[in-house]
Design a protein around this nucleic acid. Structure first.
Lengths: 201, 201
DNA sequence: ATGATTCTTTGTCGATCGACAAATAACGGG
DNA sequence: CCCGTTATTTGTCGATCGACAAAGAATCAT
């Protein structure tokens, strides 16, 4: 009924995500987006609304793909310990994948922001906090299910795991190798194992 | 021999540090600095050279004061374990101090940067990596001194500790309370204790 | 007092920021 | 074939970015 779009919106979104992932929200200018998406700025506005809308959509894509491993693993793995094991392994892999920006996009894309973008910053912080809550929820479920010792402080363990993951993101960004990161994850797993009820997996 | 400066350079540097600490390098504009230091931009250039020079000096001040606890603790505490204990406690306190920006300035001030500032970003990353190396050095010394089991993988432990500290910085920035962070640090300390030679402090 | 030196004030520079308005082009329905 | 609709191109807008030039003001040595 009207003129069809000439570019692939999905592919443009992927490129925008990679740009924001690499240099963050404020570090990626409209000029950068124009050159990396290969389309004029007016088309970006027509297709995505604004730079901020585009960023939010890019974060959504990241969380649906690369960054979504936490939710996926929690849904798939039968026991909390095995889930955590895989989450840490996936985190290292995701944050150090060759050809992709290093670190977690949700952690790095909006940390040092001008005052005018504090709303966006809070929005990302909120998503990080929710991630913690999701993990704690799964741990609590595991505790009630008898996987952990019965007085296990699952909120503390959840905080601990998120902290390690955020730390992994920073370390990955600094270029620490996947091997070194994986080695340190094994240390974290020992802590988790301390919470397990003797005899459980 | 000439007209004396009318403002306190040290105090201006403190204010610049706090501004950069709160909003980062790119998030803090010259207009912000003018209003927070209370002096005209030309005076800032005369006193500090450029925005980037000022930022580097501000990082230096941060590392000499708030951020310098790692070096100080390593020099003061007799055993590695007690040093680590205090480093984690100091990290939590420094990153959540009321009235100060949350998190570590070295971790947060230049993460999402435009391409033109990647040099600055690398400069900060290098300081973080050096921090790890310093800690690993101290751990190796402790291992040779018999504090740890003799096959202790001190690089792995050092990586682990830096990762936790970086994670603490992100968590603090997200508003997680000092109490919750301290609780999770206790979990980390168990891991460190696993490296201790049985019977040692 | 004067001159050398440095600090402070004022104003502004070119570049870039994000964001659109207006004009033109391509499509499908009637 | 024309019309309604949407896509694309082109150009530009005001604001803000970091950075300084030029002029005036304050100090000290001589």
């Amino acid at each position: 009924m009207a003129r069809p779009r000439e570019f692939d919106r999905d592919e443009a979104l992927v490129r925008a995500r990679d740009a924001f992932w690499a240099r963050g929200y404020e570090g990626t200018s409209m000029a950068d987006l124009v050159s990396e998406l290969g389309i004029a700025s007016a088309r970006i506005y027509a297709a995505f609304g604004s730079k901020e809308d585009l960023f939010r959509e890019a974060i959504g894509l990241y969380e649906a793909r690369e960054g979504g491993f936490v939710d996926r693993v929690l849904a798939e793995e039968p026991t909390a310990y095995r889930a955590i094991e895989r989450i840490l392994r996936d985190a290292v892999e995701t944050y150090t994948r060759p050809g992709k920006p290093w670190g977690c996009m949700v952690v790095t894309a909006a940390t040092n922001c001008a005052a005018e973008n504090s709303r966006l910053q809070d929005w990302l912080a909120d998503r990080r906090r929710r991630q913690t809550a999701v993990i704690v929820g799964r741990l609590e479920q595991a505790r009630r299910g008898g996987e952990f010792v019965k007085d296990a402080d699952v909120e503390r363990l959840g905080d601990y795991l998120t902290t390690v993951m955020h730390g992994l993101s920073v370390q990955a960004r600094d270029g620490v190798s996947a091997e070194r990161l994986a080695a340190l994850c094994d240390l974290s797993l020992r802590t988790v194992a301390d919470f397990l009820k003797p005899g459980a997996n």
